[in-house]
Amino acid sequence: MAPQREWLDRDFYADLGVSSDASADQIKKAYRRLARELHPDANPGDTAAEERFKRVSEAHSVLADETKRREYDEARTLMASGRFRGGGGGGGFSGGGFSGGADGFDLGDLFGGGAAGGGGGGLGDMLGDLLGGRGRPGGTQQRQRRGNDLETQTTLAFRDAVQGTTVSLRVTSPSPCTACHGSGARPGSSPRTCPTCNGSAFVTRSQGHFGFSEPCPDCQGTGTKIDQPCTDCGGNGVTVRPRTINVRVPQGVEDGQRIRLAGQGEAGMRGAPSGDLYVTVHVKPDAVFTRSGNDLKVQLPVSISELVLGATVSVPTLDSSVGVKIPAGTSDGRTLRLKGRGVPKRSGGSGDLLVTVKVSVPTTLDEPAIDAMTRYAEAEKASGFDPRAGWGR
């Protein structure tokens, strides 16, 4: 069976367990649920789960991309209508045997305008992406199918997220084979140029008045042949294995933010580019600080006398502490701003530290303290101070 048919006969919606009209959010949720259930780390030694994991990842890589999904749907609609059939009987697409007449479709519609192998866009590009760069001529190694993107997550302490840190992540995924370094050829040997297509990955044949380019049947559209496949990866250049990735988390990262690590996703087949790894960062709450954008916020417990008489109080910062002057007569709940003591900014500089004073009242007092407070209350009343003046009117 030709490679195109294997792809286009696949029902990616069924692989993810969603309907063909599922929303992008439904597709994302279905993929995440299945990826957790089928991940090799959760099913050690289970080859069936591993294979299903690959199918689910493959389906998600197409359906999560709005353009690829639309063009995939269009291709399947053509197949279902019978206007897009293979030469050898049955449905699917094998690069030839297009139906003609009034009910046939225009080659320009299939290849995005012009003759086969012409301009960019349309189903020609979609087929090229889905079939590992074999959708049209000129798509040799540089159009090989890129590996799938991966998603993982990590949890950081609040201060590590604010100041930046490096974390080690353990990821199990398809990676370049360590024995053949991703070439697919047994160590000591190398892939050779396919003699049938001379490395172009395509052969040309004529049908009626048209010339058709299709993937080379001898090399399956790769442009190379492997005489001695690597025994570790079976010639794919990829094996599923655990690996450790050191991730530099930039300062100021926020809870829920995603970090993209280019080329750290699933490996492509036979040396094709790897996908990307997306790391979602979760940040633990801090016992002292909260955050508002690039500003840090902290509540400072103070006594009544410190608010009334004024005081200089030590306030914690991210890396040490700083003295804050509380002016005499400061109201409870007032916020004092300390410039440049907040979250470091990527563009340079830092946000501010917002210190909100919060009065703390003693629950017990000894006799001298009670006497002093009584005298203070009498003096306060004699001065004419009324904390509720104008309140409730």
Rank of each mutant, 00 (worst) to 15 (best):
S173K: 15
G104E: 00
A157P: 02
G86N: 10
A59H: 02
A116V: 06
Q163M: 15
R76C: 10
G135I: 01
G138A: 04
D106E: 01
A157N: 13
A157K: 08
L156M: 07
E50L: 14
G95I: 01
A161L: 13
A102F: 14
S175E: 15
S168M: 10
L123S: 00
G89L: 01
T165Y: 11
A48K: 15
K68W: 08
F98T: 01
R145A: 07
G108R: 02
D73S: 10
G101T: 06
L156C: 05
F84S: 05
M126W: 12
G86S: 13
R69V: 04
G92H: 03
H60G: 09
G164T: 07
F93N: 05
R136H: 14
G128T: 10
S94E: 06
L110P: 07
D129Q: 11
L107I: 11
M79I: 12
L127E: 01
R83H: 06
T67I: 05
K54L: 15
G87Q: 07
R55P: 10
L110V: 11
D109V: 11
Q141R: 06
R136A: 12
A64I: 05
G87D: 08
D73K: 12
M126Y: 15
R136Y: 09
V171L: 15
E151M: 09
H60Q: 14
V56F: 09
G95D: 00
G89W: 01
Q142S: 12
A102W: 14
G139F: 13
G128R: 12
A48H: 09
L107D: 00
R85Y: 05
G118Q: 14
T67K: 15
